[in-house]
Design a protein around this nucleic acid. Structure first.
Lengths: 107, 107
DNA sequence: TATATGCGCAACCTTTCGGTTTCGCAAGTT
DNA sequence: AACTTGCGAAACCGAAAGGTTGCGCATATA
């Protein structure tokens, strides 16, 4: 099950989880208390976030603290960079961008 | 059917389409030629991209040219901004970020 | 040792996604 | 007028998403 950062942040609940644990590591139960969702649902989201390495776990007794993996967030920033270059009108390597995306394999 | 920018960029084919039309407006057929996908499939993606205003149409005879709506791309950048502030260690309004996300309504 | 708690995991269900096929229509072409 | 072409829309389908419920297990607590 190949996970993708973009797919991970597509879900609004997952973005909310990301925001929650951005500054402090939290357990699944603590996270779930912040939404109208069950602990299991949060757990599933955390699994997806962990799989694509947007989130890291830290075991502490029987509790697991989840926190944000900022480096992975930079990956999104890196993708945006090419377009930021356009709207800031400094597109030096534009053909690079284009050729990289052409003839993309299906899916 | 409320569309979301984050959901729109979740699909790899849609990201490829975005990259394709970033510098030049293209018709659905022209876009489809760049992938192993049918024109109809591309058309569906364009519909989603148009719905969330990531893409704009320009009618020209019986052809429709699609091009990127850069302003909407900035919306993603804006979301990332809060986290960029963290990894650049200049989080001035961090509690602002946190409180905004708490008690989020379900979904 | 018995009980409560925190957790992941699997099974299940409904909804959505992404694709194909088929259609209808408007705009060009002959 | 007849044909071709570019397109969106609808119907259909298998796969995946996101939720719930129930389970098993390890860790704490009585």
């Amino acid at each position: 099950m190949r996970r993708d950062v973009f797919q991970a942040i597509a879900d609004p609940t997952r973005r909310a989880i990301i925001a929650l644990i951005a500054f402090q590591a939290l357990t699944p139960n603590a996270i779930a208390e912040n939404f109208n969702t069950s602990r299991q649902a949060v757990s599933k989201h955390l699994r997806i976030l962990t799989e694509c390495e947007l989130v890291k776990q830290e075991y502490q007794g029987r509790e697991i603290y989840y926190s944000l993996e900022l480096n992975k967030m930079k990956e999104i920033d890196k993708w945006l960079e090419q377009y930021r270059r356009i709207w800031e009108n400094k597109f030096n390597q534009l053909d690079n961008v284009l050729s990289k995306m052409k003839k993309q394999p299906k899916k």
